[in-house]
Amino acid sequence: MNTASNAAAAHATAATNKTFFGKLRALALHALNLHLQNCAVIAEAYRRPQ
């Protein structure tokens, strides 16, 4: 995964994490990151020969 963009997104949300929408945005970014990691695991398992 691209951890540089994840770190940048986490750093960008640190300043806006005070409001409700800032917290919601941080939660959405975290959920998206977990989803993409899950997709990468599934793609890797699918790519490997049986």
Rank of each mutant, 00 (worst) to 15 (best):
A45M: 00
M1I: 06
A4M: 15
R25T: 07
R48F: 01
K23S: 12
F20H: 14
T16H: 13
C39D: 12
A43L: 02
Y46M: 04
N2V: 09
N33K: 14
I42W: 02
A12N: 03
A28G: 03
L29I: 13
R25E: 02
V41K: 05
A14T: 04
R47N: 02
A26W: 02
A28V: 05
A9Y: 02
R47H: 01
Q37I: 05
F21Y: 05
N17I: 13
K18H: 04
Y46F: 14
A14N: 05
T13V: 13
A45Q: 01
A15L: 13
T13A: 09
A31P: 02
N38A: 15
G22P: 01
L36S: 08
Q37L: 15
A26D: 08
N6L: 15
A8K: 09
T19E: 07
V41Y: 08
A28D: 01
T3C: 15
C39A: 13
N17G: 08
L36W: 07
N38C: 02
V41M: 08
C39E: 13
A31V: 06
A15P: 01
A8Q: 11
A15K: 14
N2Q: 08
C39P: 00
L36V: 06
A10T: 05
A7C: 05
N17E: 10
A14W: 01
R48N: 02
F20W: 15
L36P: 00
H11W: 04
K18R: 05
R48L: 06
L29M: 11
K18M: 06
Q50W: 01
L32S: 05
Y46N: 06
A31E: 06
L29D: 07
F21R: 08
R47Y: 01
L24F: 12
I42D: 10
A28C: 03
L34P: 01
T13Y: 07
F21L: 11
L34N: 03
E44D: 03
I42M: 05
R47F: 01
A15C: 06
H30F: 12
L36F: 05
A14L: 13
L24R: 12
N38E: 13
N2T: 07
A43S: 04
N38H: 14
N38S: 10
L27T: 05
A10N: 04
H30S: 10
A15N: 10
H35T: 05
A8T: 03
N17Q: 12
N2G: 10
S5R: 14
Y46G: 02
N38P: 00
A8E: 09
A14G: 03
A15Y: 09
A7I: 11
F21T: 04
N33H: 10
T13R: 11
M1N: 05
T3N: 15
T19D: 08
K23M: 15
A7P: 00
N38T: 07
I42K: 09
A26I: 06
N6W: 14
A7G: 02
K23N: 09
A31H: 08
I42T: 04
H11R: 10
Q50M: 01
L29W: 04
A26L: 14
A4G: 06
Q50D: 01
E44V: 01
A40L: 06
Q37N: 07
N38Y: 12
R48Q: 05
A9G: 03
A14I: 06
G22T: 07
A8V: 03
H30Q: 14
F20M: 15
S5Q: 14
V41H: 09
Q50R: 08
A28H: 02
F20L: 15
L34A: 13
Q50T: 03
A12M: 08
P49H: 07
A12V: 03
L36M: 12
A9K: 08
